[in-house]
Amino acid sequence: MRGQRPSTGREMEVDMGLIVKTMARVTIPFIGIFGAYIVMHGHLTPGGGFQGGSTLAGAGILFLVAFGLKEAEKKVNKKVYSALEGVGGLVFLGAALLGFSVAFFYNTLWHNGPFFNGKPGTLLSAGFLPIMNLAVGLKVFSGFVAVAVSIAAFRRWRG
């Protein structure tokens, strides 16, 4: 860091200028779509909830870095994101408990329907796996975004 412009400790609060902001505006929707695709095809192609969720969080973190903390804090409430992470976990747990009458993690949707029991290889197949991927995607996305915003907000060591 030596030899550069002295740090004020407030770099995160301001945006990164017009060029970066314009590029971010263009790319964020595409990153989001790609992340959603990875999450939804988790049971068909490589990737899944964690990978897709991280990609989605990449869009959020790009927004934070390009537009600055002030702009991001208008959009991100840390507590709500923390709660959303909990919702993701609870949905995962709920999906695991669906077949509880047979066993924990029993894939009753796949065996008995009524949905997600299509032909293997199609989008609506694999029972609880798509639900779990969505839940993990939500958990990872909200968790990473909350972490990034917290790191930006609670930076204590200046200079």
Binding site: K79, V80, S82, A83, E85, G86, V87, G89, L90, L93
Partner: peptide, 12 residues
């Protein structure tokens, strides 16, 4: 697990 995941929601 239920307790850990639901506690941030109850925190609200």
């Amino acid at each position: 697990l239920l307790g850990a995941f639901s506690s941030p929601i109850l925190d609200l």
